[in-house]
Amino acid sequence: MSNGSFAIRPLPAVRLPAAVEEAMHWKSSAEGIACYVAGGTLLRTQWEGDTVPLPQQIVSLQGIRAMHGIRLEDGVLSIGAMTSLAECCRSPLVAASAPLLAEAARRIGAPSIRTTATLGGNIASGIGDSIPALLVSQAQLEWHTEDGTVRIAIEDWLETVRQGTHRQGAILQRVFIPVPSGDEVTLFRKIGRREAFTPSLVSVAFMGRPAGSEGWSSVYAAAGGGSGIAMRLARSEALLLKGITNLSLLARTVKDEFITFTDAFAAAEYRAMTAGNLLAAELYKHISHD
């Protein structure tokens, strides 16, 4: 502020490329700070809150046709990164072939947010609520890099985010999700601070194939939430695969292995305990219904 008035920040220049190569060119050749923008819902809150600096140049990915659309190819669901969360919610293909993603998308934000926010933006943030669902669905991400197109499992990509070794200039083009057989037990649950649009305190996802009396032939479990990076719960998965049905032990195991964080709203221990109790409670519903 100066002389009682607010300083006016200059608006960033906006580029509208038609191809990923053009988008990478504009970002790499920009003077000052430049960033890619998909739906921009998270970035706008970060800019308004001054948690992320306003760039001098925005490279919008909206006009890149190859990054749009949902299709089924050889038993794998392919979703363009610029597909909105609302499209994921209402798509019959997503509902039938990736039910966990459909459920997670319905739980993200308010309807107006889901209309604008994209699946790619939710993933590229590294903290989106779709990520636990995609982790247990064994999704793969297709990135366009300076060295060409690279496909990587979302779990491996998240590890590069944790290590700070992910490629900053890469563009997420498409998401690939293997279609489950239909025999799996699936669940996605999110605990937030209020009913409507809010970052989650905790979100958990699960996919498992039952095998006999209370046993499992395959198990995938993940947890995330808030500003933390989601993770697979390998120790908890191993517990279930061994046929152990003590859900109190499962809840404690999740609590012990889930690496999360403390902020102004919740302590890390509380988040981890909530994730464990949530997963155990939902699996109890499955066991009690069988």
Rank of each mutant, 00 (worst) to 15 (best):
S2A: 14
N3M: 15
G4D: 03
S5L: 15
L11C: 11
A13M: 09
L16C: 03
P17G: 01
A18L: 06
V20S: 14
A23M: 02
A23Q: 04
S28N: 14
A30Y: 04
G32R: 10
I33S: 15
C35H: 13
C35S: 14
Y36R: 05
L43P: 01
R44S: 10
G49N: 12
Q56G: 15
I58G: 03
V59M: 05
Q62G: 14
I64R: 01
A66N: 14
E73Q: 15
D74R: 11
G75E: 05
L77T: 07
A86R: 08
R90D: 12
P92Q: 05
A95E: 10
A96G: 08
S97C: 13
R107M: 09
G109A: 07
I113N: 00
I113V: 09
R114Q: 05
N122I: 04
I123V: 14
A124M: 04
D129H: 04
S130A: 14
S130P: 03
I131E: 03
I131Y: 05
L134R: 03
A139V: 08
E146I: 07
E146M: 11
D147K: 11
V150S: 09
I152E: 06
I154W: 02
D156W: 00
L158E: 01
T160A: 03
R162M: 09
R162L: 07
G164P: 03
T165G: 02
H166F: 12
H166V: 11
H166E: 03
Q168S: 07
L172N: 12
Q173Y: 08
R174H: 11
I177F: 08
G182R: 06
E184L: 04
E184K: 10
F188R: 02
F188V: 04
K190F: 06
R193F: 12
R194V: 05
S200H: 08
L201R: 15
L201E: 13
V202R: 13
V204C: 10
V204I: 10
F206P: 02
M207F: 02
G208D: 03
R209K: 13
W216G: 13
V219K: 05
G225V: 12
G226N: 13
I229K: 11
I229H: 12
A234M: 07
S236I: 07
I244C: 09
N246C: 13
L250F: 05
A251I: 11
A251S: 14
A251Q: 01
K255S: 03
K255I: 00
F261A: 09
F261L: 11
T262L: 09
A264W: 14
A266P: 03
A268F: 00
Y270V: 11
R271E: 03
M273V: 05
A275V: 15
A275G: 07
G276C: 09
A280F: 04
A281D: 11
E282N: 06
H286E: 01
I287C: 11
S288R: 14
H289P: 00
